[in-house]
Simulated assay, not measured.
Amino acid sequence: MPLTSHRHPYLWPETFGDALQATVFSALVWALAATLLYFLAPGLGSFPRVLMFSECVGITMVACVLALRRSQRLARLRPMTRWVVTGLIAIPTGFIAGHQIAFLLLGEPMQMVGNQRISLSPIIFTVLVGGLGLYYYATREQLAKEAAARSEAQRLAIESQLRLLRAQLDPHMLFNTLANLRSLIREDVDRAESMIDQLIVYLRSALAASQTEAVALSREFAQLRAYLDIMSLRMGPRLNFRLDLPAGLADTLVPPMLLQPLVENAIKHGLEPKVGAGSIEVAASLTDSGIEIRVSDSGLGLPADEQGAADIAARPAGTSYGLQHVRDRLHAVYGSAAQLSLERRVPSGVCAVIRIPR
């Protein structure tokens, strides 16, 4: 799972692209303000002159706001107080400094608003437009904070759900194995000792997997091999298995203990009830859309009323603990981007197919 980085909203915008976007947006807003001011307050000069003053005021104000937003002293204030202080500094600074810059660019003598007397119209327009702009950015910052809080809460909820699902799976496997071991002790002590050794290896691997949110496919396959070794000791020649993991996919991260429920399901419902030997094959491969993992068995196969490529989502929730568990894990981590389906095998058996994005 990728690590998340925490950005400080009070430093907005943080990148050059964000600053450029804010400047361009401000330029458009102040051009509109210049147009309104030109028609509503005649006597300020030609439209290009009014536009020059308006743009210089707006860009100067934006520069002032960007500088103030990086002040650590302001960052310690409450959000609303921070924006009010920013406005009280940026609006007068933008108005006065912006006018002086416009006079300099136009080659005119520097004065307050371009006339011998002070005009209130530019001042009122500057306060209104600057105040609305700051209110827009304050609202945007608040919405970004709320969205970040919702995202973090959703991430924590998913992590809690995954921990719960793993906690449900571990005892399920352990109880089954201990029940099998109890029967084997009476029949074959040597095989029972070998099973205990394999169980220790498996539990160590499972403990390591329980302490992380994602494991490499190589570790997932190693844990699966330990589990199948245990089942091979119990079932003897009735169980053969093969694991196929390409080297290029060994480091791919997946939810821990994702494949074991499918293997358990194949043994419990496919191979154990079947008379004679059977096999399980787990193979991973890279496809155009992501990674495909197939868990195939030569067991009894799907019931007669099941479709040949049944979508697990369409099956009743209580049909199989293993299938339901995998479906929940995939949904919690990948959402609708991952799929789990069943396919019939000829002449018998089932293939569970997991498709996940890479």
Rank of each mutant, 00 (worst) to 15 (best):
Gly290Trp: 09
Gln260Ser: 15
Ala266Leu: 08
Ile267Leu: 15
Pro255Val: 07
Ala226Lys: 06
Asp251Ala: 15
Thr252Glu: 03
Glu272Ser: 13
Gly276Thr: 09
Met231Val: 06
Leu259Gly: 00
Leu239Trp: 03
Ile291Thr: 09
Asp229Pro: 01
Leu228Val: 02
Leu233Ile: 09
Ile280Pro: 07
Arg242Leu: 11
Arg238His: 03
Ala247Tyr: 02
Arg225Pro: 00
Gly236Lys: 04
Glu292Lys: 11
Asn265Trp: 04
Ala222Cys: 08
Gln223Glu: 04
Pro246Ala: 12
Asn265Met: 09
Pro256Cys: 12
Gly270Gln: 12
Phe221Val: 08
Tyr227His: 13
Met235Ala: 09
Leu258Val: 13
Gly278Met: 09
Arg238Trp: 01
Gly278Ala: 12
Ala222Gly: 13
Gln223Ser: 13
Ile267Gly: 05
Pro246Asp: 08
Gln260Asn: 14
Leu224Lys: 02
Leu245His: 00
Glu272Asn: 11
Pro237Leu: 04
Met257Gln: 05
Asp244His: 14
Leu228Ser: 01
Met231His: 07
Tyr227Ala: 10
Ala247Gln: 08
Arg219Asn: 14
Ala247Gly: 07
Ser218Val: 15
Arg219Leu: 14
Ile293Val: 14
Leu249Gln: 03
His269Asp: 08
Phe241Ala: 04
Pro261Met: 13
Ile280Thr: 10
Leu258Ser: 08
Gln260Arg: 13
Arg242Thr: 09
Met257Leu: 15
Ala283Leu: 12
Val254His: 00
Leu239Lys: 05
Asn265Gly: 13
Arg234Asp: 05
Val254Tyr: 02
Leu259Gln: 00
Tyr227Asn: 07
Ala266Asn: 03
Gly248Ser: 15
Ala222Thr: 12
Glu292Asn: 09
Leu224Pro: 03
Ile267Thr: 06
Thr287Ala: 11
Glu220Asn: 08
Leu253Val: 02
Val263Leu: 12
Leu271His: 10
Ser218Lys: 15
Arg219Asp: 15
Lys268Gln: 08
Gly270His: 10
Gln223Tyr: 00
Met235Gly: 03
Arg238Phe: 01
Leu262Asp: 09
Pro261Val: 13
Ile230Arg: 03
Pro261Gly: 14
Pro255His: 05
His269Lys: 10
Met257Glu: 02
Phe221Pro: 00
Leu286Lys: 15
Phe221Leu: 06
Leu245Ala: 02
Arg234Thr: 05
Gln260Tyr: 08
Tyr227Arg: 06
Val263Gly: 10
Glu281Val: 14
Gln260Glu: 15
